[in-house]
Nucleic acid binder design. Structure first.
Lengths: 168, 168
DNA sequence: AGCGAACCTCAAGCTCCCTTGAGGTCAAGT
DNA sequence: ACTTGACCTCAAGGGAGCTTGAGGTTCGCT
């Protein structure tokens, strides 16, 4: 492959940034974290293969759903290294993500239903509601949207405790 | 109201922490950020009214959905200051949150559907997919799960752009 | 009065996810 | 040859959301 031919199939970091909508600094960061990879030119500049666009797309999508970079990295590491990932490779990855999305949707729906219940009883209970009581281990890792994709609750909810705000 | 009577209706920070499941340090933090309020005893200790439990519950619930503290603070500030919030006050707040939840659910569902589409076309397009392209202003504020509750997309999606990974 | 647990106030530290800046190199156009 | 813009590295900064630690006070009980 000639150098010029290469140029048609590879992207500079600037091009990748522009086309993916991600800042150059963020791309550097992703590379440092092992989420994307590049070869270097003789002049030490990064050259990304075109499928890096897909990787970046995948990263952003995953982030929007609430998955931390470390986990995304792990998922991406399951793509074949030796060859350019095929559509099927990507489909498999996306499929697993889709399942997580489904779980998250189910979880939010329950959250919504429980919120409605809580309004009904006039009680925003920390112990009784799924609202404050995420039956998942991720909930224990502290609050915040850091890890939104939780393993969807095993259904045995914790024993209904007292209502923290209604009782004495 | 006597001091002892007061004690029955107020909570120390430790009690609030225990009953809400939130660390004392976090409660201090919330107070510093104006999400909760306390009176101080003669000895400079915090005393929280009982409805603070509900506030904390509301905070945690909101966080789980992905709402940043600043926004939660703003929502809470709509509760009446002069009197203890009634069930109706809380219901109004929760109702507005429920709507956001609905929006969020809808958004995730579309995300999921689009992901399926993308698998279909074999293309994880940054420009075409809702996936990478959250038609909402919050998406522009950078990535991450920091602000997941977006104003549900006005439906005119952006003009279908080229597929960033499929074309040349 | 004395003890320990719980409380107080800063200030600093931590994780995540980047951005900004300084100082320097590379590549393409004139 | 020169300029300009894109690129490089590395270190530091920033915001969100807390936690940890030091040093000191107060509460409740015996």
């Amino acid at each position: 492959m000639t150098q010029s031919a290469r140029n048609r199939y590879e992207l500079t970091v600037g091009q990748l940034a522009e086309r993916s909508g991600v800042a150059v600094s963020a791309l550097h960061f992703y590379e440092a974290k092992g989420l994307i990879h590049s070869r270097r030119t003789a002049g030490n500049q990064r050259r990304f293969t075109r499928d890096t666009l897909r990787r970046v797309a995948f990263i952003r999508v995953s982030q929007r759903v609430g998955i931390p970079l470390a986990e995304i990295r792990e998922a991406l590491s399951r793509l074949p290294e030796e060859r350019t990932p095929t559509v099927d490779d990507w489909a498999a990855l996306s499929e697993s993500w889709r399942e997580k999305l489904d779980e998250r949707i189910t979880q939010l729906q329950r959250l919504r239903d429980d919120l409605t219940d809580c309004i009904g009883c006039g009680c925003l209970s920390l112990n009784r509601c799924a609202l404050a009581n995420p039956y998942d281990e991720l909930g224990k890792q502290g609050p915040g949207p850091r890890r939104l994709l939780v393993s969807a609750a095993k259904d045995p909810r914790p024993p209904a405790a007292e209502c923290i705000s209604c009782e004495s």
